[in-house]
């Protein structure tokens, strides 16, 4: 019932992207977003597309999986495209239909906008969510934000909370599924009736879910204390993150792409 969630799922693997340092990957993701948004004409966008395609190839993630993750944002893409096609003023009329006039510029703009969105999703997913385990990700966030702990921001605690939250998402989905089934077996009906009736039907699911979450949190806290967990101070790591040659090489590739795009932007007229 709730097992169709692919958005933000980690696929274990052994590719180059899987092996990159997670801290570097966060920075690459930011860099990638900068690249996508600085590509302002078809040529620089093509360069960005080449980067996205090579990253996807390197990650060895099934193309079907990537297409499937586009589904939730399909509506946004169609909406942006339609808005841009009909509301972009221009000079070259493509066709007009009553009051509505569609310009060549509008269509061009919409196409590029959609490509940009697709690249944005594919790239960030391939670099970060699909190839980075949640544990590595929170670890990286903790390390990247650690300078903030000097001014009193509890970065370790935030990271710990985040990894615990991530760890419990599948558990909670399972649990919700079970409770839904159990209440359905007692004749609960979530599919018919007015909005108010349907909202009320959720109470028998939410209350047991909250109660078991609190119970779980309590048990987890005790279990952590039993193992002498006392916060981040003086805590050492089993896996120490270390930048390697492949991280430096990848950053070089990203920097080169960004430079090329900036160069192309100066040569051609900006469209986006």
């Amino acid at each position: 019932m709730l097992n169709d969630i692919t958005l933000g799922q980690f696929f274990p693997g052994n590719s180059l992207l899987h092996k990159l340092d997670p801290r570097a990957k966060i920075i690459f993701t930011i860099l990638y977003i900068v690249i996508i948004f600085s590509a302002k004409n078809p040529f620089s966008l093509a360069v960005a597309a080449i980067l996205a395609v090579s990253l996807t190839a390197l990650s060895r993630i099934n193309i079907k999986t990537i297409l499937k993750s586009m589904k939730p944002i399909l509506f946004i893409m169609v909406f942006t495209a339609v808005m841009n096609i009909f509301w972009t003023p221009g000079e070259n009329v493509l066709f007009s239909f009553g009051k509505i006039t569609v310009y060549y510029e509008g269509v061009r703009f919409a196409v590029m906008m959609v490509i940009r969105l697709v690249l944005l999703i594919t790239g960030t997913f391939v670099i970060l969510t699909y190839t980075t385990s949640p544990v590595a990700l929170t670890d990286a966030i903790e390390r990247l934000t650690s300078p903030l702990s000097k001014i009193g921001v509890p970065t370790h605690e935030f990271a710990m909370m985040m990894s615990i939250a991530l760890r419990f998402i599948p558990t909670l989905i399972d649990e919700t599924d079970k409770i839904i089934c159990a209440q359905k077996a007692r004749g609960a009906d979530f599919e018919t009736g007015s909005l108010l009736k349907r909202a009320k039907a959720l109470i028998p699911i939410l209350i047991p879910l909250f109660i078991s979450s609190f119970r779980r949190a309590d048990e987890l806290a005790s279990a952590m204390e039993c193992r002498l967990y006392h916060g981040g101070n003086g805590r050492t790591r089993m896996k120490v993150l270390k930048l390697s040659a492949r991280d430096y090489m990848t950053s070089l590739a990203f920097a080169a792409t960004l430079a090329l795009i900036i160069f192309l932007n100066t040569r051609f007229e900006a469209i986006l």
Binding site: E175, K178, I179, A182, K184, A185, G187, P204, P208, S212
Partner: peptide, 14 residues
């Protein structure tokens, strides 16, 4: 569902 009653494993959580 009313003719066949099903009691789940660990039903106390419902």
């Amino acid at each position: 569902r009313f003719k066949v009653g099903l009691v789940f494993q660990y039903p106390e959580y419902q």
